[in-house]
Amino acid sequence: MLSQQILNGLVTGSVYALFSLGFTLIFGVQKLLNFAHGATFMAGAFIAYYCTISGMPFLLAIGLSMVATGVIGIVVDLVAFRPLRKRGNAEFPALVSSIGVDLVLISIAQQVSKTQVLNFPFGTFPVKFFNFLGLRISLLQIVILATVAVLVVLLIFYLKKTSFGRQVRAVATNERAAALLGVNVQSVFLQTFFIAGALAGLAGVLIGLLFNSMQFLMGEPYMLRAFVVVVIGGLGSVPGAIVASLMLGVMQSLTVAYLPSGLTDAIIFTLLFIVLLIRPNGLFGDANAVAGGTRQ
């Protein structure tokens, strides 16, 4: 039973990781918090849902939804962040304007769905279970774990080993120096927003499938959790976000299983508090961040 809960927690945690990576990547590169990330996640689930019920093959629907949420990410940058960045000192205004975009997306979704809870039609994803070592794992859980693992490896490879990734890290480390070296900072921002949006969109679809329930406010609790994950992991740290997401998923699964239901959030935030007391910069704060680092 315990190991079953841990397994379930790891699956949820891996989706948190997908969601939080984009959030931490944007923070690492721009030093700005993108509060439209939750609605982007919701939009991913919604777009995949409406594509599926209109008869599109499910895989195509996922692909389309990732591209669309990537584009939403780009729009967030162009509309909410870029105009503020030009004027300097954008931290607080950008937070407010990204909440604005978040609310707009939520309102649209509310209209479109008429505030209904949506479910993927039965059979969208094959329902299949496997048993091994006394654990019960669904095909969906396996696919989620594998997909997230592959994407995380790809993302780290992209950041560490490609010229584009080096440019992303250069901007994260020192935006002015990067510009002097010929790095197109605006295009780096657009790229990271696209990647972050697409990952959030995919996370939305996966959560929609996993709990088979989607509604226009579904992104908001995830936004809060991504925030916790990113702070615990260390702002801007990719490995930190992954470790903290998995920890959070497992913690949540265990508290839901063994403790009165109302305690889950209290425990998560107590954990956050304790981590921050011991390590104010988070588990992976500062120097060893892949995308982050200190601004000079």
Partner: peptide
């Protein structure tokens, strides 16, 4: 190419990576 005051190296990246980023202007 402008080598700015205070050097402004990419502190979190390796020496080699700094040089590779330098090549982007080429």
């Amino acid at each position: 190419l402008h080598v700015p005051e205070g050097r402004q190296i990419l502190a979190d990246m390796s020496v080699y990576e700094n040089l590779l980023v330098g090549q982007i202007a080429l």
